[in-house]
Design a protein around this nucleic acid. Structure first.
Lengths: 108, 108
DNA sequence: CTGTATCCGTTTGGATACTG
DNA sequence: CAGTATCCAAACGGATACAG
């Protein structure tokens, strides 16, 4: 994993939800646990919590807790987390091309 | 999967071996099944075959078969396959940064 | 040499119930 | 509201044997 930076990067975003979490945070600056769960339709609080923990360990996101009643916790991207966006844009552009090349040859 | 180009792209490279296969093909232009298996230390012929099939279906690689005895099959990247390299370079650069930020904060 | 068929252990994602 | 604990099913990776 640590012998290849690309694999290291991909590993951080691996799984069903992490990319989407980063994407939501990129559009929101800050977001609360519950709202994030609503936006990621279908995720359980267990999975969301687990994925947020992992992203925090990799320093992609920051968790800020306010000691209020009811509890409030806000998540946001770190500078490192924001810095991945250009790579994702580039990958997305390639993804569109890859998708189109599949469609073109479907009729075969 | 098809609703997000980034996810579509990541899905193509998903798994334990596909990234490394693309990487090897990027350095070799052509490579035979057996040599590829030797380079990807630890992969079984079953897994290699399966991963090559999937990459071929996504039009990332091309399989060329020569009807000789013994059989010879060569794999190479398509133009689409080559075109992913800049994205991987960029992701790798970010990966190095992410890795370093982890190391820096380890002593905490 | 280049695969396929079968079977199996591990990992991943998730449903549900519960807590401070 | 923001999680944790427990348990379960499906997906993934792989070992082994075998085939053209």
């Amino acid at each position: 994993m640590n012998d290849c930076p690309v694999k290291y990067a991909l590993n951080i975003l691996n799984g069903k939800w992490k990319l989407q979490i980063v994407w939501e945070l990129n559009q929101q600056e800050k977001i609360r646990f519950n709202e994030l769960q609503r936006r990621l339709k279908g995720i359980s609080s267990f999975m969301l919590s687990k994925n947020l923990d992992e992203l925090e360990q990799y320093r992609i996101i920051v968790r800020k807790q306010y000691n209020e009643v009811p509890p409030r916790v806000e998540y946001s991207l770190t500078e490192l987390g924001k810095a991945i966006h250009p790579s994702l844009e580039m990958l997305g552009a390639w993804g569109i091309r890859a998708f189109n090349e599949m469609q073109n040859q479907r009729p075969s």
